[in-house]
Design a protein around this nucleic acid. Structure first.
Lengths: 98, 98
DNA sequence: ACTCATATTAGCAAAAACGCTAATTAGCAC
DNA sequence: GTGCTAATTAGCGTTTTTGCTAATATGAGT
């Protein structure tokens, strides 16, 4: 859902995670090490991002590799741009929500 | 701040307000009438959007006219796109935050 | 099976967001 | 001034988010 995406983007730490992931996939612990928050806290941020489908998780033996999901990020950016200009109808958001 | 913008975008009603404002300026009461929430509730949503600088308010005698602030919306969209691809450094967010 | 490293889930408390009704401010008309 | 409309602010309770520690899963190695 569109809403979970924007809610996920509402927290600075989560946007930061996406920024780190932009440069390439990363292990959970590797990510957690970059932040001051406790490990469980970061784990939950990752869960929120995953729930919004902004990232994907893949087990690699003992650890878990996270990847950014570019297309969802693109959709969000497009939705924002859709809020600008455009002499279009008023239902661009509804379409994008599906 | 970047953070207030994304927090403001996190609520569906507020995104909807922006969508309505895209078509042109609107009076506060006119906007409030489009939603099911109470008028004070909408007033606060508008305050959040204004605090994030996503909209601007202008008195028109008895009433208040709201306008979308396109540039801030653009900046947010750009920030999201910056989270994608780009073999850039890791500090694009920091720059955009200023 | 036992142990270690990696990561998540459970459970709790503090903080913030949400949405309401009631009260207040702001401007216009009389 | 009073009265009326438009809109915000105050105050409250409920819900959600956040972040911690402790407990639990999951997999690899011995």
């Amino acid at each position: 859902m569109q809403n979970t995406v924007f809610k996920a983007l509402a927290h600075p730490a989560r946007r930061q995670v996406l920024a780190l992931l932009r440069k390439g996939p990363r292990l959970a612990g590797d990510l957690a090490a970059e932040f001051e928050s406790s490990w469980p806290t970061m784990s939950r941020h990752l869960a929120v991002l995953k729930d919004a489908d902004l990232i994907t998780a893949e087990r690699q033996g003992n650890q878990i590799l996270y990847r950014v999901n570019t297309s969802v990020l693109e959709d969000a950016a497009t939705a924002l741009l859709g809020l600008i200009g455009g002499d279009n109808g008023d239902d661009e958001l509804k379409e994008a929500a599906e």
